[in-house]
């Protein structure tokens, strides 16, 4: 009894320490986003803003373009926010549509051979920086550099492996006899997809979409590589204004960080239970 008690206390102590480590940086960023400029850097640091303000949010969310001159910067994120949202959504939607169709075809007909998903996965394992250099040259030639289409195509390619692997697991759970039954009853293959497979994997499709959306929303390296002035995502915007150490706008940047994080955290918790499937490579016992 005593030992159990002791173990319980020790467990909470250990977990509380990690909880503090986890929460402190998030807390700090959110708090900073509500601070006036005088409180951004002080000693001792202020953990609670004296007079909470929304000014940082107002600043970054007003229309206009970000500028950086003479050590002074103005950060505007409406455009990057829209770009990020548009690019990530489009790429994820198309990736889910194509990838799940392919996963279906592979599970049911073995199209592409037994190793196909592994081949796709091994392509995904190559660090993106390897391909980044020729990519720019290629995109310049095709006039795709700094365009929505260019970035969407790349994100489509990088999300597809994840979609395929996630959807494999969901589709394998639909008994093939259900499809047979529907076909014998007169449904065409397309009908079977629409009336049987789609409703039965709907949850999986949503989860997969959100998962790759988060990936695409967060991507920095390829976005930096393949955009210039026309297209700009949230991670790029953060990075652009980070390089200048002088006169850093902690508050507005914190506001950007909070804005960028919030939707992802919400989405993430929606799919929390299924999140692990995305990177389980079908290796998880049910």
């Amino acid at each position: 009894m005593m030992r159990r008690r002791l173990f319980g206390v020790a467990r909470h102590a250990g977990l509380l320490v990690w909880m503090a480590i986890t929460l402190a940086p998030i807390y700090w960023m959110v708090m900073t986003s509500f601070k006036h400029s005088g409180e951004w850097v002080t000693w001792p640091p202020r953990w609670v803003p004296h007079e909470p303000t929304l000014i940082n949010y107002v600043k970054v969310l007003t229309p206009g373009t970000s500028t950086f001159e003479l050590g002074r910067q103005t950060l505007k994120i409406l455009k990057p926010l829209w770009d990020s949202l548009f690019i990530a959504t489009t790429a994820s939607l198309v990736a889910v549509a194509l990838g799940s169709a392919l996963a279906y075809s592979w599970t049911r007909f073995g199209t592409g051979g037994r190793r196909y998903p592994y081949n796709i996965l091994s392509i995904r394992m190559v660090p993106p920086i390897v391909i980044a250099v020729p990519f720019v040259v290629y995109y310049v030639t095709l006039r795709l550099l700094d365009t929505y289409t260019g970035l969407i195509l790349v994100y489509l390619a990088t999300s597809l492996p994840y979609v395929i692997w996630m959807m494999l697991a969901f589709i394998e759970e639909v008994p093939v006899e259900l499809e047979h039954a529907a076909r014998v009853m007169g449904a065409s293959r397309f009908r079977v997809l629409g009336r049987i497979v789609l409703p039965l994997t709907a949850a999986g499709l949503v989860v997969t979409f959100l998962f790759v959306f988060i990936l695409n929303w967060s991507e920095l390296l390829l976005a930096m590589t393949l955009t210039n002035t026309e297209v700009s995502t949230i991670p790029i915007t953060l990075n652009k204004f980070q390089s200048a150490n002088e006169g850093r706008d902690y508050g507005p940047q914190a506001a950007i960080g909070t804005i960028a994080t919030l939707p992802v955290v919400v989405l993430g918790f929606l799919i929390q239970k299924h999140l692990v499937r995305g990177f389980s490579f079908g290796l998880l016992r049910k």
């Binding site: 929303w217 967060s218 950007i256 999140l275």
Partner: peptide, 12 residues
């Protein structure tokens, strides 16, 4: 709480 960090954009 422990799952929170992986949902934050790495750049952030």
């Amino acid at each position: 709480v422990f799952l929170l960090p992986m949902m934050i954009v790495p750049a952030v």
